[in-house]
Design a protein around this nucleic acid. Structure first.
Lengths: 183, 183
DNA sequence: GCCTCCATGTAAATAGTTACATGATTTT
DNA sequence: AAAATCATGTAACTATTTACATGGAGGC
């Protein structure tokens, strides 16, 4: 349901399926990802519904590209989605793993699990921090100075940072608690 | 992929599909949910694979219940899953909405969106806080005093709280920024 | 009598992943 | 000459949601 709307959002500028996938990797991967095998059929469906138009671009190099652009109908659909209330439930597989951790017989398994959790979240945090550092060095006066079109993507970055910081702290506290209980 | 393992985790004690659904509503809903229409077929598949066994319980009241219990094979599968590394990508639909918010023509739409975001996260935070308060009033000396089987579920609660607090703060800061920019 | 809760399930649709197929161009 | 990247797509499978079908028990 959401990929449709995300594609409509990305297609503020015309682009090919492949370029859209690049955009996912470059800018959205912190909260969304999509495989090409999902992108292409979804673009087709959106075209069938009249929300996108496409044409083949002459092959400058390599195979020809099919370039999609958003129609008015597509833009309307996007604007409606942008006003929808958010959906309730989130899914965190690793929290399910934590939840049942006590069922694993081996006594160090919980400690090991949290150590690897901590590592992974520290790494994510580092990645996000680097991106923020780059924004800050390139654009002094951030965020006040930003245009709206950059401000909201920037906000998704700051939330990612805040949440990851909270998660790293939680991992550390949990690890300490687990280690204290060993004795 | 995960629902299988979550069912195996819940079935440390034998239970029916309906009871499992209750358990989702009572204890896991903060990070996972599942419809009965998904639970029943998944239980069937797990039984076919020899990870669960079932028998019909005599109808004390109402229709008979099919009670599932975990086999050794099922337990092994669970233990393996509990040691798997976590998967990389998370999905947050509302962050995609934030990301494209600038494309909505109407100037107050962003403000409205964040106001409703803030409300919803404050509400979730309140719910989680209530659950924590109850644990704390019922079990003084939490978390040190807890058995492992309660400690890890408790940890999923504390992470939920920490993340929601971070999110509420982010909503507030974002709203202030948006309101400052109006002038 | 009607509504809700208990309890199980199927069917159909949507969403998403993994694997496969194809072929050109550019880099090593 | 092999490997990586560009570029599009299909097929098969897995995961999830929404809607429907059925029927008993207990409360209003």
């Amino acid at each position: 349901l959401s990929l449709k709307h995300i594609l409509l959002g990305i297609l503020a500028e015309p682009a090919s399926g492949y370029q859209i996938k690049q955009y996912f990797n470059a800018s959205l991967r912190h909260f969304w990802s999509a495989e090409l095998a999902q992108v292409y059929p979804t673009l087709h469906k959106l075209e069938q519904k009249g929300m996108l138009q496409s044409h083949l671009a002459p092959p400058t190099k390599g195979p020809p590209q099919r370039i999609y652009s958003r129609t008015e109908k597509g833009a309307d659909e996007l604007f409606n989605w942008l006003e929808e209330p958010i959906s309730g439930s989130e899914r965190f597989t690793y929290l399910a793993q934590v939840y049942f951790l006590a069922q694993n017989q081996s006594p160090e398994s919980a400690e090991k699990f949290f150590q690897s959790l901590l590592k992974q979240f520290q790494q994510r945090l580092g990645t996000l921090q680097q991106i923020l550092d780059q924004w800050q060095s390139e654009i002094p006066g951030i965020p006040e100075i930003l245009e709206d079109q950059d401000l909201y993507p920037y906000m998704t970055l700051t939330l990612g940072l805040a949440r990851n910081q909270a998660t790293v702290q939680w991992c550390q506290q949990s690890l300490e608690l687990i280690q204290r209980r060993k004795s």
